[in-house]
Design a protein around this nucleic acid. Structure first.
Lengths: 117, 117
DNA sequence: CCTTTAGTACGACAGGCTTCGTAGTACGGC
DNA sequence: GCCGTACTACGAAGCCTGTCGTACTAAAGG
């Protein structure tokens, strides 16, 4: 039996995720950064540990937008909340989208173009 | 010499295109539809011919957002304005992003998930 | 039980977005 | 030269977003 935390977190079902919502969620610099960090193996990191240029309230807001768009999954672990990318779901729905976006974001933080030399 | 139309259209240079702006441009249902139609070979079509569920003014607005984000290139041809996707530029900057997004949009117009039977 | 830590809820505020209508400009055809 | 077509500019309305601060709740640890 799971401990069944009283703090439930609503996630959209796989077939409720829309492309427009995912793209919108990823079109914000802060959220793009969160997604990139999650992809880079920071999956077991509390929300507060992301060192974002916004306050705690705003951080909560952005994590929620990502979750409600279906980009990330979240679950509580003590007082902390852990987030993971919904890679499989998104890959099944929109093949290649998440991967290529994260790749692009990594090479060009938040928007800078890739100027090779 | 080109006829040098007095109606110039400002386009961002390749290295001015940002990922966030591109994602934002594509996160609107109307614009996603425009991009999909352009990808499907309607490159030589006037803006007005796109049969969008908005007025002419709004259509102009959306085409401009796409152009200013670097997603499309536009040029006048008589009284009409032709648009084409900046596939090469985007592929060079953000490999796979445009292609996978368009693919996803085609299979799931504007956001619906792909329910195979 | 009390304190600390992590995150939430709520309200507020500024700014942006999408939409529209109307008026105006550029081009092509008669 | 005149008219129609395609697009633009401008302003307005309504909504949504990102940001914050403050007050609150849930869990962990002594």
């Amino acid at each position: 039996m799971e401990t069944m935390s009283p703090r439930a977190l609503p996630h959209p079902a796989t077939d409720e995720i829309t492309l427009a919502a995912v793209l919108h969620a990823l079109s914000d610099p802060v959220r793009l950064r969160i997604a990139t960090m999650l992809a880079d193996g920071h999956g077991d990191m509390a929300c507060i540990a992301f060192d974002l240029p916004v306050t705690k309230s705003t951080t909560t807001h952005h994590f929620r937008v990502l979750r409600e768009a279906g980009v990330i999954a979240q679950h509580y672990q003590g007082t902390s909340k852990m987030s993971t990318l919904r890679r499989e779901d998104l890959e099944a729905l929109f093949p290649g989208v998440l991967t290529s976006v994260l790749n692009a974001a990594r090479g060009a933080q938040t928007g800078e173009a890739a100027h090779p030399a």
